[in-house]
Design a protein around this nucleic acid. Structure first.
Lengths: 338, 338
DNA sequence: CTGAAAGCGCTAACAA
DNA sequence: TTGTTAGCGCTTTCAG
């Protein structure tokens, strides 16, 4: 059974296409009798208006595109969830694509979105894109008058609405928390490459150190790429100095750091306190449970979607950048020293 | 800058639309000279063919729809990841929607997909849908000749391609593993409602018991709804009998069971062994690490997408049901008793 | 080599 | 109350 169109129905009743169109749309212009006949037949034949045709006509699709760097990261899943929720409440559907942190894939996706498929776009930049600072594909889209909202991984090079996490403040807050419970030598394990996010957190870290007159020691910043062996890195670190606190810049890193530290016989939090970023499912259930920075992913998603939908509906407003504050969830991996 | 169309370009050069169309498509019918001029202008103006128009013309969209019940569940995220990968390799995009286990939302989504928006559909049924056994929306879609592949949460009521996990065998295998290491009283904590998946696992469980002449005790099957308090349920269970093994039918349940059991002073695995289903990020990092059933989510996604794309490209083949075997990842929460 | 016309499926003036 | 026409943006015969 192939899809039935207005034309098919019109043929069946020997009336014009527009008559059928009006009938199925329950227009008052059509006689009750004819309308009923047509509507029944339409239902029987499972008639559904073709959305492509409607979209073409209305020059709007009621869908929004979403590009995230990595769907296996719980933060982005939460954001996605928030976006989906708000989008749905407002009658929008979502086309979601994964850039996999690759600039090339991101551009390909953006190319696709830049062709009438979506009414607006939400995107968090791929790491590669942030590093290379190449934003042509996106600026093309913006130039084509497609509303764009950037979240989390943003760039100053683009003029559009943005939703960012207050990563600077988060870095500051975590460091201060560690200092307050008595840590002096605080290491940072950074798996985020050279992303904007990681940089901001480090700036916050430095500010907190300054505030307490603790000298900044670059050797305490461990940059972790996928090739590195965490075990080895930690070994260097722990032999280098007496470490009292460690900040892991994402959840899985914090969990792994915890493992390594425990395996080496340290007691967490009595010997070493640990804080992680990006609160997800893991940190609550490891032993000891990890103190984490929650970025409120779902909320960010909701906010982002609201911003976008708002712009779609009322264009021309000045661009906004919303900053979402993080929360520190204090659990068992950080302990007040007496 | 509004989107530029063929018409605009035609106007600019005072030629016909079809000439421009041919020029941008690099047709040999157009003089090299004109072609170059037009192509340059098109590039300069960021011309992109409107996909909606093309899709309407070709009656195909090169996108596939995906409906998952719950995106916060790591299994479904993995499947999604696999689908996206294969889809992408084959030039398809993905529209993903979340049914949130709600029948109503699912139908709404299916309604949307049943209107020319996608070339095919991948779906795992919402729990509610499985319980109520109402599949009208989906069967409408199938009747409208839109290829559908069902995965994981499937139903016999629908004729289409399917990819299922061998949940029966998985239930059997886990139970047998526990019996082999010396467990007699094996409880099951089932948070999956009355889904097909849970039922099959329980059947496997019973078969294993039978095989070893262990009487089946329905009191050892704990159905866990979101309203239930796991702590209380476990309290009943542990007071009822000496439990030696517990199977949690999803990851978070297994982790929580582990927590409760540990909190009550039992040693895992010496007093009680625990196995969970749906291997995700959690189970590896809890203490002790949990023995889990891996369902190979990513592989399932890939397989599902391949099946769908195959059917889109060559319709008319007989329907297939592929069964994916699980693997048991033995970790520290199950121990050989001597 | 270039253009006119038809059509994908639908809606919305405007006529009849 | 019903039908005609035009058009959304594009491709594709078929004439010129």
């Amino acid at each position: 059974m192939k899809k039935v169109t207005l034309k098919d129905i019109a043929g069946h009743f020997n009336v014009s296409i527009s008559t059928v169109s009006k009938a199925v749309n329950d227009s008052h212009e059509i006689s009750a009798e004819l309308k009923l006949k047509i509507q029944e037949y339409a239902k029987e034949k499972h008639y559904k208006p073709n959305r492509l045709a409607l979209n073409l006509l209305n020059r709007s699709t009621n869908t929004i595109g979403v590009v995230v760097p990595n769907i296996l990261n719980y933060f982005f899943v939460q954001v996605l969830y928030g976006i989906e929720k708000v989008a749905n409440e407002n009658g929008y559907n979502i086309i979601s694509c994964i850039s996999n942190e690759s600039s090339a894939k991101e551009s390909k996706t953006l190319e696709f979105f830049d062709s009438g498929t979506v009414d607006g776009l939400i995107i968090s930049l791929a790491e590669e894109t942030q590093n290379e600072n190449k934003h042509e594909a996106l600026s093309d889209i913006i130039n084509n008058d497609i509303p764009v909202v950037l979240f989390d991984r943003v760039t100053d090079a683009l003029e559009c609405d943005k939703v960012v996490v207050d990563d600077f403040e988060a870095g500051y807050k975590t460091t201060k928390h560690l200092i307050n419970i008595g840590c002096n030598n605080i290491a940072v394990v950074n798996p985020t490459g050279s992303s904007s996010v990681g940089k901001l957190r480090l700036l916050g870290y430095k500010k907190a150190l300054e505030e307490f007159d603790i000298p900044y020691d670059p050797k305490l910043i461990m940059n972790l790429t996928s090739k590195d062996d965490l075990d080895m890195l930690m070994s260097f670190l722990l032999n280098y100095k007496t470490i009292e606190g460690i900040i892991g810049l994402d959840e899985i890193t914090a969990v792994k750091v915890l493992e390594v530290v425990k395996a080496r016989g340290y007691n967490v939090p009595n010997d070493i306190s640990i804080i992680g970023f990006t609160n997800g499912q893991l940190s609550k259930y490891v032993t000891p449970s990890l103190t984490m920075v929650s970025q409120h992913g779902k909320y960010i998603g909701e906010l982002t979607a609201k911003l976008l939908i708002n712009r779609i509906k009322t264009p021309g407003l000045p661009y906004e950048t919303k900053t979402v504050k993080t929360s520190l969830l204090v659990r068992d991996s950080t302990k007040k020293l007496q």
